[in-house]
Simulated assay, not measured.
Amino acid sequence: MKKLLVLGIGNILLGDEGVGVHAVEELKKDEWPENVHLVDGGTFTHDIFHILEGYDGLLVLDIVHGGKDAGTIYYLEEKDIIDNDKQRLSLHDIDLVDSLNMAGAVGKRPEMRILGMEPENYTEWNMDMTETCQAVFPGYLDKARSEIKRFIAEFAQ
């Protein structure tokens, strides 16, 4: 059975920077098939390459600096990050791609997709997301649920 890792990345102490972690914690409240694993990856993406081993799919939940209005939701694939050096997946994108490369070097490399949100505040100490990001957070969760279901459907083919 193919496996999916849903990885929430971010720092919940820096406002909107924690959107991925907040999202994965909310998604853990839903019921998922046994081949879907939800993990709080925090900010240690370089150290987690060993967690990526054995997965066929990887859905990353994080902030994305795309230059649009705060609260904008982005869907990206790995090639979007690699091909566009101006696209930044939070502060952790280089480490995450490196971790994927290391996982591939020692075993299987999962297919990565990213669901991100443009932050408003990600540099000031605050455990709450801004009102702007909180307002779109339910829609962000719905898109994450849809993407998880899409992975599951693709795995069944």
Rank of each mutant, 00 (worst) to 15 (best):
K2L: 07
L4V: 13
L5M: 01
G8V: 07
L13I: 09
L13K: 15
G15E: 08
D16I: 11
D16L: 15
D16F: 09
G18L: 12
V19A: 14
V21D: 02
H22F: 08
H22E: 04
E31F: 08
E31I: 08
P33L: 06
P33Q: 09
E34V: 07
E34P: 05
D40P: 03
G42S: 01
F44C: 13
T45R: 13
F49P: 00
F49N: 03
G54R: 04
Y55F: 06
Y55L: 01
G57S: 11
V64A: 06
V64P: 02
G66K: 12
G66V: 05
G67L: 08
A70Y: 08
G71C: 13
I73V: 06
Y74M: 00
Y74D: 00
Y75Q: 11
L76I: 08
I82L: 05
K86C: 10
K86I: 10
L89Y: 03
L91E: 02
L96E: 04
V97W: 02
D98G: 12
S99A: 15
S99R: 12
L100V: 02
N101H: 06
M102R: 14
M102W: 08
A103T: 03
G104F: 06
R109N: 01
R109Q: 02
R109G: 00
P110R: 15
E111W: 02
R113D: 02
P119N: 11
P119W: 10
N121L: 08
Y122D: 15
T123L: 10
T123V: 06
E124Q: 13
W125Q: 13
E131M: 07
T132R: 15
C133W: 03
A135N: 13
A135W: 07
A135D: 08
Y140A: 00
Y140N: 00
L141V: 04
D142Q: 12
E147Y: 09
E147A: 14
R150A: 11
F151R: 12
F151I: 12
F155Q: 01
F155P: 00
